[in-house]
Design a protein around this nucleic acid. Sequence first.
DNA 1: TAAGAAAAATACTGACCTGTATAAAAAAAT
DNA 2: ATTTTTTTATACAGGTCAGTATTTTTCTTA
Lengths: 196, 196
Amino acid sequence: MSKKKKINTRNTPIRERIVETATRLFFENGIQAVGVDKIVAEARIAKMTLYSYFASKDDLVMEYLEKSADAWLENFHTHLNQVSKSDEERIVNTFIYLKENFNNSTAYRGNGFINAATELSDGRNPAHGVILNYQDNLRGCFESWAYNSGLKDARELSYALLNLFNGATVSTQIEDFPEPLTHAINLAKKLIELHR
Amino acid sequence: MSKKKKINTRNTPIRERIVETATRLFFENGIQAVGVDKIVAEARIAKMTLYSYFASKDDLVMEYLEKSADAWLENFHTHLNQVSKSDEERIVNTFIYLKENFNNSTAYRGNGFINAATELSDGRNPAHGVILNYQDNLRGCFESWAYNSGLKDARELSYALLNLFNGATVSTQIEDFPEPLTHAINLAKKLIELHR
DNA sequence: TAAGAAAAATACTGACCTGTATAAAAAAAT
DNA sequence: ATTTTTTTATACAGGTCAGTATTTTTCTTA
């Protein structure tokens, strides 16, 4: 007789508060650096309540990554739709968006998915699937935007742009200064010209 | 009367074995994921011996980063000198070097300094100074190589190349597949043409 | 060979970690 | 109003963490 733990699958305000608090703490401090005790303290709930919604910390981490990836992409597209008149503009605006995000943050923490990928070094960790999916979603955006704009070699360009996206994010995080993003914006424009 | 701990500053084989073991474990598993007990076990020394050479784990981490940065740059230049006939070739060969490193590794772990920077999120950590120095050293190489090759806007090009370097490293680490590095090599060649 | 220094072995501290057991209090549903 | 579910509070288990104290053994050097 297997004695399984019963997990509450309902979507209550408490559950949302757990995920929101974990999301904020994981992103600001890193996943390994945040203990369950800190999450329950800041969410002002009992530890047992957390473990009634999530089987383990790893489960909570998975939900953090999945929900954050969805939210990131949604904010991303919402913003791009507001400032872009064409798919070609969306490409350049992607990097302007990164720079605005840096300027609007007091302590820049880069990209939560890149951080998670380097932190959870074991590639067999299921979190890597979410991160890979996020990255390929982003690259796919670049590819279709490039294709719709009539640019040559859209697929190769999309890889270059993803490289540029990741590189500019990491460089900015290391330097804590927006200069790499300025160069990334210029480089994105040049890449578009190269593929026109 | 301040009671300080006496640190052995001699450079003995044991000390080197500690640093070598820590270097391997930190790079393969991440800094936070490796405990002092694991280091002393794999180096087959007593824990007290480690603490007679290093005041704290943070001290050992600093030495790991400093020594690794020196060793990385030395290997880098040694290899580039063997395969390059000009500074312009050094630029492209940098990215070929990354790809060869990936192909020669069983479990690619990317760049130890990028990993450390994302792992040690607090920018006030003295480790960030070492990482910044490493990055600027690398960018400086790009800049002087570009300048010596008569390329235009050497400084801006160097930032683009550093972005490309970091981005390709991170993308490869996430994907665990060398395709981003292939695109990075092509992109580096294009960037050189753009600045000719 | 004797004295001194280095290293090892062992046990420990106090803090933190994930996860659980249990019982009381609060809330919801019947 | 009573039962059932949810949440809390508290304590705890078993592990790991960085770092230290103490004693014994080994090595070096004089």
